[in-house]
Design a protein around this nucleic acid. Structure first.
Lengths: 195, 195
DNA sequence: AGAAGTATACTCACCAGTGAATATACTTCA
DNA sequence: TGAAGTATATTCACTGGTGAGTATACTTCT
C-alpha cells in the first residue's frame, strides 16, 4: 500500500535529517540511519539509490521549510524594511542559542562536499541559497530600492557569514552583529532611494 | 637526529595540509597521508598522537601564513582605508578562481567538526579567526574610527560569508560583492568619524 | 650500548553496497 | 468470485574493502 511505503521513506528521511545535521554527512553511516529509522539498511537502499542520493534528498527536504522560516520571520517582524531584515538575524541568534544548533545544514554540507563540486546535493544547496537571494531581491525591488539584487547579495553574505562565524566561535551574538550591519546597509539603500 | 625528525614531521604536515584541504578532514585517512608523505603510518603515529592531533597541527600550521597573507594584501593595497579593506576581498576573488581553491580551511574544518565543539582543532580555528578580527579592529582603531571592534566584526562576517557563498555557488564574484559591502561599511564609518 | 626514528605486519571495528528470500497487496483472467 | 501472477516493500546475512590505532622488531646515529 502506498501509505505505508511513504511512511518508511519518511522515517528514513527524518532520521537522515537529524543525524546528518547533528553529526555531519561523512560522520554518519547508513547503518546508523537505518537503525534510527527502525528498518534495515537494505530498505534504505530500496528507497534511495545510494548514500549520495540520500544526502541530496536530505537537503531537498530542508529547502522549502527553511525558506518559509525566513519568510515568516521577515513577514511577521514589526517596523520598516531595515527592521524586518534585521529581524531575520535576530531570530537566527535565538535559534543558534539552542544547544542542538549546528549551523546551516546547506553550508556545512557544501563544506564537506567541497571536493565534489558536481555532487547533486551541492546543486540543491546552491539552488536553495539562490532562492533566498532571489526572494530578498524581490522584497527590495517591491520596496522600490535601487540595485535591489546587489543589496540582496550583501545580505546573503552577512547571513552566511553569521552562520559560519557563530559555528566557529559558538557565539550567537555574531548574528546580532550581522543584523546591525545588514540594517545599516538596508537603511543606507532606503535613503539613497529617497534621494 | 632532530633534523631528520623534523623533516619527516614536516613531510607529514605538508601532506596533511594538501589532502585535508583538498578533500576534507574525514574524507582523508592517515594511510593516504602516510603514503603521500612517503612514510608509513606508524611514523605518523610516532610524530602525532592521533588523527585529531594531526588535524589540530594542520590548522595551527595555517594560522600565521594565512594571517600574513591578509596583512600583506591589506598593507600593499593602494588608496584609503576603505580601498585597503576592499583589496582583501579582491584578492580572495583572485585566489578563489584557481581550480584548487576549496574555501577557507578553518571554516570547512569547523563545519566538519561541528559535532565536536571541544575539539582542539576547533579552538585553533576560533583562535585564528579571533586574531584576524583583532587585527582588523586594531587597524580601524589606529585609523581613529569609532566603534572599531564593531566594524571589524562586520568585516569578518562579510569575509566568512564570502568564503561560504563562493564555495556553495563556485562563483568568486561573491567576494567582489562582499568587498563592495565592506567598502560601504568602512566608508560610512570614516565619514562618521569626520563628523 | 641505547635512544630516536622507521618499517612490517597486524587487529578490530566499521562502512557502502549486495544477494537471496519473503511478506503484503494489487491485478488479471477463468 | 477466487486462484494465479506481479509489483512493492522489507528482512537477514553477507562481502570486499577501508578506517584508526598498535605490537614488535629493525636501523642508525651518538
Amino acid at each position: 500500500m502506498i501509505k505505508s511505503a511513504e511512511t518508511a521513506r519518511e522515517r528514513i528521511l527524518t532520521a537522515a535529517n537529524k543525524l546528518f545535521y547533528a553529526e555531519g554527512i561523512r560522520a554518519v553511516s547508513l547503518d546508523t540511519i537505518a537503525e534510527k529509522a527502525g528498518i534495515t539498511k537494505k530498505t534504505v537502499y530500496y528507497h534511495f539509490k545510494s548514500k549520495d542520493d540520500l544526502i541530496e534528498a536530505y537537503l531537498a527536504s530542508r529547502d522549502q521549510p527553511n525558506l518559509n522560516q525566513f519568510r515568516k520571520w521577515f513577514g511577521e517582524a514589526e517596523g520598516e524594511l531595515p527592521d524586518k531584515v534585521q529581524a531575520i538575524f535576530r531570530q537566527i541568534a535565538v535559534s543558534a542559542r539552542h544547544p542542538k544548533w549546528k549551523g546551516c545544514g546547506f553550508l556545512r554540507t557544501a563544506a564537506e562536499l567541497a571536493n565534489m563540486p558536481g555532487h547533486p546535493a551541492m546543486k540543491v544547496g546552491a539552488g536553495h541559497k539562490k532562492k533566498f537571494e532571489a526572494w530578498m531581491a524581490e522584497e527590495f525591488e517591491v520596496a522600490g530600492i535601487d540595485c535591489a539584487p546587489d543589496l540582496a547579495r550583501h545580505i546573503v553574505l552577512l547571513l552566511d557569514g553569521a552562520f559560519s562565524t557563530i559555528l566557529v566561535h559558538r557565539d550567537a551574538s555574531y548574528a546580532e552583529a550581522a543584523g546591525e550591519a545588514a540594517r545599516a546597509l538596508v537603511s543606507s539603500a532606503v535613503i539613497n532611494q529617497a534621494a
